[in-house]
């Protein structure tokens, strides 16, 4: 019994980690800047391809964890730079959420077109970190150590974000201009909203590309992953609530474990489960399980 329960938890870890990071990428912009932006899904795609490409060419078969971590940091910075550049040259001119939705959804086509030009249409893989970190056996379950690495990175990122938002003066400025605060009042008090928005987009881009980079050794980098990423992130926000770090983490566990259980018990429902959870949440608590009714 314990072994089965643990197998559900362990097997869900990669998806849980990926959902936590990815959903907060979208959630962060939504919460702090009150903007809907789907660009994160395109950056996620870039993160996956660039990680596979850079790690493959720089590390090759001689895998090392510090080397791979360095690649991930570089990919995170690249994601941040892309996000800031896209915001500065394109997204900041979009004035309504409808425009932002349509324009950033179209932007996803540009991202996938660019990927096609650079890497072609054949999926690419770099699975050395996943394969070479080895595995451990816990209560009869074989678990790749990479699952723990991935989950550790996700938890670290969420703790760092939590610390930044709730323990620093800059975090106070972010919260003051968030959906929980009052942007006009924050600006009147001297908060530089432009700087806050730019940094928000940078953090979102970093999270998105890291999610892509971390998951790529497990599933490879292929066309279409951005669509799946978009759906999972949106569903997680619906269930967890806007701006809630705890909500993102717990929802990721709910969706991840639910998918693993249905994969074994009722495989036909595996893909439908996140949608069912989101539908029930919307009926019972439209602001998300850990979300709150927002002023704006």
């Amino acid at each position: 019994m314990l072994s089965t329960v643990l197998s559900y938890i362990f097997n869900s870890l990669p998806m849980v980690s990926y959902i936590i990071i990815l959903s907060f990428s979208m959630n962060f912009i939504l919460y702090i800047s009150s903007r809907v932006s789907l660009t994160f899904a395109g950056i996620y795609l870039v993160g996956a391809y660039v990680t596979v490409s850079w790690a493959g060419s720089l590390l090759g078969r001689s895998f090392s964890l510090p080397g791979f971590t360095a690649v991930l940091i570089a990919v995170g910075l690249l994601g941040a730079a892309i996000s800031i550049a896209v915001y500065g040259t394109f997204e900041r001119f979009l004035k309504t959420d409808v425009h932002r939705m349509i324009a950033t959804a179209s932007l996803l086509l540009v991202f996938s077109g660019a990927i096609k030009l650079k890497w072609g249409t054949t999926p690419i893989t770099y699975s050395a970190p996943f394969l070479k970190l080895g595995m451990v056996e816990i209560v009869g379950n074989v678990v790749p150590i990479y699952y723990f690495f991935m989950f550790g990175v996700a938890v670290f990122l969420m703790l760092a974000l939590g610390w930044f938002l709730y323990r620093t003066s800059w975090g106070l400025r972010f919260r003051a201009s968030s959906l929980d605060g009052d942007r006009t009042m924050a600006q009147a008090c001297g908060v530089n909203l432009n700087a806050v928005t730019l940094i928000t987009f940078g953090i979102s881009g970093m999270l998105a590309s890291l999610a892509g980079g971390l998951y790529a050794p497990i599933a490879g980098a292929s066309y279409g992953i951005e669509g799946n990423a978009l759906l999972l992130a949106a569903l997680t926000i619906i269930v967890g609530g806007v701006g809630s770090i705890g909500g993102a983490v717990l929802t990721a566990f709910i969706i991840g474990i639910a998918r693993v259980i249905t994969a074994v018990q009722a495989p036909m429902l595996e893909l439908a489960v996140p949608f069912l959870i989101a539908s029930v949440t919307l009926m019972v608590r439209p602001y998300g399980i850990w979300g709150k009714e927002l002023k704006h």
Binding site: S7, Y8, F10, N11, S12, P14, M15, Y18, N141, V142, Y215, I218, A219, S222, Y223, G224, I225, E226, G227, N228, A229, R259, V260, I261, A263, V264, P267, M268, E270, L271
Partner: peptide
């Protein structure tokens, strides 16, 4: 005997693999 989702972007097959081994 199992059938996993077809062509899902970023699939996670860990549950199926665990069950095969068990």
């Amino acid at each position: 005997t199992f059938f996993h989702p077809f062509g899902e972007a970023g699939p996670n097959f860990a549950a199926y693999i665990t069950n095969v081994m068990q």
